[in-house]
Design a protein around this nucleic acid. Structure first.
Lengths: 194, 194
DNA sequence: CGGTTTCACATACCTCGGGTATGTGAAATG
DNA sequence: CATTTCACATACCCGAGGTATGTGAAACCG
């Protein structure tokens, strides 16, 4: 249980973050009781408030972490191909697949908007993933693959479509649902081609 | 303050429903305190629990009401035109426009999924509006306007796209945002045509 | 029409959980 | 080695959802 002080500090911070993430994902923000999170890692509320200031502070930190990981995953999948159009498709597919992770679903897609408020959620989402989508679309416009148009409304439509689809896929027991959704998404995207 | 008993009962029930709706829309579910809702209509918590059983019960009733109104509005707009394809477009536009109502935004789009749980929300949404969208798409497939395909994934994608777009539109101060979103949606939809 | 029952609430109380104020002991500092 | 810092732990407060119980007026019944 020892180590230098900053080591120990970081260790409890990490532990709180991970335990919080588990519980937020499993039970949802409002069902989680902060004292239990702390107790589960052999600590107390005091530690949580020392590190994160509030229950919402812990949640915010968890959201940021999950969001960063998701952005990373999507970007990595997209960069595995060269063609910009295929990059867009790969990114979309990676996002749909990421919905399989309960942490992504419950924390990012369901709870974050209402708990953090839509404004803060959107600004966090902007940095983590929305920006990449917008940039991809702009690139496709620049190369003439899709028609020139305002990119933000389109990005919002696509982002919303994939959010909802990811949630639906998680509940579907049809093994073909993912493939069907990918096909439907392809049809929609194809409509954009100039 | 008088009247027969069932009159009085219905009156307080309506008052609770309306005041709750106002506050849920303005402040969000978790910020609303039930005792205040009751006090605002000159009543007490007891009345609310008598009628709705719990805070969540009141919220559920409000959600059902708002959802029914929304479904009604969308269906009415769609039925103003004859062509099935134009009905789909009109319905989508009506939905986007409906997002201007804070009650729709905050209650239906933001809070309902997390407060009621995604499953219950989805089953309520199914009855109120998702069903209509799916039927419209099936009709378009039957007439050969769009290619045969599983309708549910597509409906989910479109529903999610419009949800998110409605939320975004509410925050946008750009007066052209609505028109731009409608154009983007048209492009996506056009991609479906056979 | 008087007594009885029903019922739509009002009142009082409980409990749980987020937040805060304060204490403490070990590591860092000089 | 004395002092300060700081990462927590402990004790306490309070607001809000839920519950148990009381109550007074309308409905019902003979």
């Amino acid at each position: 249980m020892a180590g230098t002080r900053i080591e120990q500090r970081e260790a409890t911070r990490r532990a709180l973050l991970e335990e919080g993430r588990r519980r937020f994902a499993a039970d949802g923000y409002h069902e989680v009781v902060l004292a239990d999170v702390a107790q589960a890692i052999g600590s107390t509320k005091g530690a949580a408030y020392h590190h994160f200031g509030s229950k919402l502070g812990l949640f915010r930190a968890v959201v940021a972490e999950v969001q960063a990981e998701l952005g990373e995953r999507v970007a990595r999948e997209a960069d595995r191909v060269e063609d910009p159009w295929e990059q867009l498709r790969a990114g979309c597919r990676a996002f749909l697949a990421a919905g399989a992770d309960p942490a992504v679903r419950r924390i990012l897609l369901v709870d974050a908007p209402t708990v953090l408020g839509w404004d803060e959620w959107r600004s966090m989402d902007e940095d983590a993933s929305a920006r990449h989508l917008a940039e991809a679309l702009e690139g496709l416009i620049a190369t003439g693959t899709i028609a020139p148009q305002p990119v933000e409304p389109l990005a919002r439509l696509l982002s919303g479509a994939m959010n909802e689809a990811a949630l639906w896929l998680a509940r579907s027991k049809d093994p073909d649902a993912l493939a069907a959704t990918e096909r439907a998404l392809d049809r929609l995207l194809d409509g954009l081609r100039a």
